[in-house]
């Protein structure tokens, strides 16, 4: 899902960068207010966690080729402001060291992977928690559903970015079917993994989950 250099037109890349800078600027302003004590090491740990789990040397356990995107998990653990910061750090390091995603398309990737879970996944998560009965199980179910919605939104957004400024002329319909089809499967896996990790953490250390409180 990390878009490499040259895949979208410069105009789309620049727009993506502008949106990413604006969104992250807001996140930075909000996190500096609440960045106390344990938040910082937890954020670092979550970042390290994603980096290790997404390293290509580690086989993805559930038998699909897609790795955990993790945006919604980060938002559920760290809140809507620090979560995107963490995913952005991971995305930048992956682009610099692992060659996963381009530098010129960093903005677009940050929008898809970091800002969508905060802007779409988090409200869905909060809304579902209000509807569902209280309790750790429904919180984790809500996190899982929010993760699925985030992944699908990112896939639709990716298709839209491609439709507006794709560098190749493949019909948008073909791209839409293949991308959204593949990511529908990824969304299911992501939902299950997110829900189970949140459920496990709520049982072991509920204080590490931001949405638990």
């Amino acid at each position: 899902m990390h878009i490499p250099d040259g895949f979208v037109s410069p105009a789309v890349a620049i727009t993506g960068a502008a949106v990413a800078v604006a969104g992250l600027g807001m996140c930075v302003r909000r996190t500096q207010l609440e960045l106390t004590g344990r938040q910082l090491p937890l954020a670092g740990l979550v970042a390290a966690f994603f980096l290790v789990l997404e390293a290509p040397i580690i086989p993805v356990a559930v038998g699909t080729s897609g790795h955990l995107l993790g945006g919604t998990l980060a938002v559920a653990l760290l809140g809507p402001w620090l979560g995107p910061v963490v995913i952005t750090v991971v995305t930048v390091i992956q682009a610099l060291f692992a060659g996963d995603g381009g530098l010129s398309t960093l903005g677009v990737n940050v929008v898809n992977l970091a800002l969508v879970p905060a802007a779409v996944g988090y409200p869905v998560l909060l809304g579902l928690r209000r509807v569902l009965p209280r309790g750790p199980t429904s919180t984790s179910v809500a996190a899982g559903l929010a993760a699925a919605v985030s992944v699908l939104t990112a896939a639709v957004l990716f298709t839209a970015e491609y439709a507006v400024g794709g560098a190749a002329g493949v019909p948008t319909g073909t791209i839409a079917v293949s991308t959204i089809g593949v990511y529908a499967l990824v969304a299911v896996v992501e939902a299950v993994v997110t829900a189970l990790v949140v459920r496990g953490l709520l049982a072991l250390r509920a204080d590490l989950v931001q949405v638990a409180s």
Binding site: Q32, L35, L40, A43, G44, A47, A48, V89, I93
Partner: peptide
């Protein structure tokens, strides 16, 4: 925030 998180991540 970014560099602090990144430093912890490396650690």
């Amino acid at each position: 925030v970014f560099t602090a998180v990144a430093a912890f991540m490396v650690r």
